[in-house]
Design a protein around this nucleic acid. Structure first.
Length: 187
DNA sequence: TCACTGATCGTCT
DNA sequence: GACGATCAGTGAG
């Protein structure tokens, strides 16, 4: 697994996330990510470890799940060595396994809307607080599997939804996927 | 397609 | 007590 958040954010495009729950198994191909770096004023880790963000400081490959705006969970992957606060936010994915389970969780929406956006992605995969801190490279309810092998053509833009560090080119996406979030000018 | 708004609540100041 | 790595709904162009 790559050694910093930018490399990991690029690496994760095309990788498969798999979630196994009581409802069944769901999986998706990751098509959009954002990197949050150490010393990045927009990152949750910026002010140092707290009870909420401590998973960002785990060694790379652990889940950081947080609850935002009173409604939504978002899934990140910790991205550096233990003690360094860095992560990659999973922003969008294409459904692979378990579309019907996703539709039960998300409602009867089009395939491309099932996991478009970080809150929707977490909801479709059934992710919540219990997934915080999991090792995504080990057996368990949530893990990362290798991608299809096909090399994705990766686009870069600024990140979405921030009030700080808004110009940094730290959002990465598959140029050929129709399933990416945010305003059209950023695709 | 874009702009704006309300919902809703955990976390940190 | 304010605000946030969001979303769904609404209305205008």
């Amino acid at each position: 697994m790559p050694g910093d958040a930018v490399a990991l954010a690029r690496f994760l495009i095309g990788v498969t996330v798999v979630s196994a729950s009581e409802d069944g198994r769901t999986s998706a191909r990751i098509v959009e990510t954002e990197a949050y770096l150490p010393g990045d004023a927009a990152a949750h880790s910026f002010r140092g470890p707290t009870a909420r963000n401590r998973s960002l400081f785990l060694s790379r490959g652990h889940a950081y799940v947080y609850f935002i705006y009173g409604n939504h969970y978002c899934l990140n992957v910790s991205a550096d060595r233990a003690g360094v606060g860095a992560g990659v936010l999973l922003r969008a994915g294409e459904p692979l396994e378990g579309k019907e389970i996703m539709r039960v969780r998300r409602g009867a929406v089009a395939d491309e809307d099932l996991l478009r956006g970080p809150g929707r992605l977490a909801q479709a995969l059934g992710i919540g607080r219990s997934h915080d801190g999991l090792d995504l490279c080990a057996a368990g309810p949530l893990w990362l599997a290798s991608g299809s092998g096909a090399e994705a053509e990766i686009g870069v833009s600024r990140r979405i939804g921030l009030s700080k560090e808004i110009e940094r080119p730290l959002r990465f996406f598959d140029r050929h996927s129709r399933v990416v979030s945010g305003p059209k000018r950023l695709r």
